[in-house]
Write a protein that binds this DNA or RNA. Sequence first.
DNA 1: TTGAAAGCGCTAACAA
DNA 2: TTGTTAGCGCTTTCAA
Lengths: 333, 333
Amino acid sequence: MKRVTIKDLAKKLNINPSTVSRALHNHPDVSADMTAAVQKLADKMGYKPNQMAINLRNGHNKTIGLIVPEISMFFLPSVMKAVEEATHERGYNLLILHSNDSVQRESENAELCLFNGVEGVLVSLTKQTHDIEHFAELSYSGTPVVYFDKVLQPTHAHKIVISDENAAQQAAEQLLARVVNMARPTRICGFFGDARLAITQDRVLGFTAALTAAAHECDSDNLFFVDTIDSAYTTLKTLWQQPTRPNALFVMSDEILTGVMKAIGELRINVPAELQIVAMSDGFVPQFMVPPIPYIETSGYRMGKQAAELLFNLIAGQEIEPDTNFIDTPFVG
Amino acid sequence: MKRVTIKDLAKKLNINPSTVSRALHNHPDVSADMTAAVQKLADKMGYKPNQMAINLRNGHNKTIGLIVPEISMFFLPSVMKAVEEATHERGYNLLILHSNDSVQRESENAELCLFNGVEGVLVSLTKQTHDIEHFAELSYSGTPVVYFDKVLQPTHAHKIVISDENAAQQAAEQLLARVVNMARPTRICGFFGDARLAITQDRVLGFTAALTAAAHECDSDNLFFVDTIDSAYTTLKTLWQQPTRPNALFVMSDEILTGVMKAIGELRINVPAELQIVAMSDGFVPQFMVPPIPYIETSGYRMGKQAAELLFNLIAGQEIEPDTNFIDTPFVG
DNA sequence: TTGAAAGCGCTAACAA
DNA sequence: TTGTTAGCGCTTTCAA
């Protein structure tokens, strides 16, 4: 059974398709009677506009693309939720493209957005992405692109990111405030991710800055770089056997926090009595501890909201100078 | 700067657009020379087919829709990952539609899929959905629909679900096996979700069946219905103060398990020495415990994979009788 | 082997 | 106020 088209309506009413089209859009030129008649028939026959025809005619899609490097449990669901909401509010659709941590696929995804006439693109880059040439065509064709979370810093582009250094510093300050009056000598350790990543380096900077400012010693013995849940877990286990256990721990991310919490469970460490912890987190993981682990909120939801907002402003044609925008990172706990 | 079209290529080569189109598709009727020449020029000029035009011509979209009731952390990310993979493998795109637990929006989303010419739809229903009339138009128009996870049981449709009763029974049996030789008297409790939901009722059935089969008493004092993380948490805390603490716990879902784990952390319950637990889970949450909590895997990933597979078979035109399919629910632990 | 022409469904400039 | 016409870019039938 074929779908009802504008032509069908026109034929039934012995009028021209263009009149039907106008009537359906409440064009002021069409008489009230005509408009009513057309809309009534459209309703009766269950007319639904063919979005694909509209897309072709308009040259675009009422869709935005979301390109993500991986679908992890820790951050992306929050981002997606925010983006989906923003997208739906404006009557747009959301096309999800997954790069699977491959630059090749990221590039294909950018092309896909272009071919499909997507009106705007949100991108979080893969770890391997060292230039964004493959997005040039998109921007070139007038499709706005907003980079979020995993971005390439030196580039001139619209970016929404966490201020890693600041956020880490805030977290470290919170941690310091909690151990300042402790009886036994304070040892503060920091758990960080892959040392080669910019995000890690920035967070280390913030962490050490806070400690230095508090005149607290901060040598490299207290910095640990663990790039998986498991290595976080084993590292804390080892550390806990040392004669000088830490009594305060900075944790850079949810992934690492997961490993840390496993170790805490197994070692039956009394948190926070024996070990103060402050993390950087989206907020889901810390609640698994009682009392919940305090954290600087690096909210995927907030990031998604802000990135989408910016993107839609660009789509609406606002002239906005490409810039790096930081999301709020409030303390929770 | 405008995109290069087939016409542009044709003009440059002084041939007809139809020949260009054929050459680009390696049509056997076109001479090798012509084909080569066209493809070379296309390459040089950076020709990219306009997907929107192709969609209009074909009447469909190389896209599948995924309609989900909510974006939670517990299950959906796994489903999405699987669906995304399956979709990408076949050169399709993924349109994500979020019903926000509203039947109204679910219905709109179904329409959207229709208008957009989506080739197939995967749906997980909202809790409030009591009929699937709003998907009738879609199926009617020949777009296959596969329901997964949250389905409407009595309906004649393609469904991929967990066998709740079986899976719960397996979990309960695992739990029984673990307490069979315990010194102190065994008390087995079950933590379930909202008692009004079919999923809960089925899981209760499986649980009680296992206990009954093992000649283990199973009165209603041992069944707890908690529909949030918090109520799971407080319920276990209260339960633990009772003179006859349970020494075995069945947990129906990740959400409930989260609350249970909070209580365990706070009460410093020694798991599994003091309390054996077997859960039903996607696998992410149990790892926060050391040793990890054993579970019957109700895998979103597997469900997504299987649902997508079925959908693509239907899209490919296979005649498959609508039926309810159960995914495997292996024991992990 | 290639060209001509029509059409997917919709809209907008132009004419009447 | 309504109709005519052309065109978005692509494919395919039919004709040459």
